[in-house]
Design a protein around this nucleic acid. Structure first.
Lengths: 105, 105
DNA sequence: GGTGTTTATTCCATTGTAGATATATGTCCT
DNA sequence: AGGACATATATCTACAATGGAATAAACACC
């Protein structure tokens, strides 16, 4: 199973996830929104499916796709130490400013 | 400038960022850690540089690379609505459990 | 059973990417 | 200036990914 990072590298696939975040949608809807051909859209959906980022539910001749967020945890967790570092820097800046003499009077 | 998502799709590049999160490093150090050839490492660094994810400071004949986290904000922000959705689901689950009769006695 | 509708699969062409080797550039030291 | 060292760039190759067109498969409806 491909890593979530590789899957998210493709803009159309991020767009698909954004659309599915609002609500589940059939392939046809996604085709319209993306401006891709139907086969192209289906192919991206296959990649997303194999990465566990979407789930498919048949509805007669249609296939309704819905979001599965679990694999996004990988990205969230990778980002974690960077967020921490970012916060630490903000703290340091704040302490720095607090320790500085007032220059504006 | 390439999107941060595309840059992060490559595992070696994520590894480089993780190493630079600890401290700035010269190319040689990164080559050792990655187990890649020097040119290969330099090429990844170029991609990272062009995406604004690292910064280069010459030090004699060495080039010391350090992390720049700003472009990671794009990823963080894209993830935001998913985090919100995730939190909402946890809330719903919690409310659901609270409303359930105790089964364990 | 045939037809229209919806989606998946296959095939092809194009392009992009990662890696390796060889080479160039620039810096230090003597 | 010359040699050693560190890094970047160029070139080549192999492979993967994207997108389109054509085709196949599944289902609904008459």
């Amino acid at each position: 199973m491909a890593t979530a990072f590789a899957v998210l590298a493709e803009p159309h696939r991020r767009r698909i996830l954004d659309l599915l975040l609002e609500r589940p949608r059939a392939v046809g809807e996604l085709v319209e929104e993306l401006g891709l051909t139907q086969p192209g859209t289906s192919k991206h959906l296959k990649v997303l499916r194999e990465a566990g980022l979407v789930r498919m539910r048949p509805d007669a001749q249609r296939r309704v796709y819905e979001l599965r967020m679990e694999p996004l945890a990988e990205v969230h967790e990778w980002l974690e130490p960077y967020r921490r570092m970012w916060a630490r820097r903000l703290d340091a800046l704040e302490r720095h400013l607090d320790a500085m003499p007032d220059l504006d009077d």
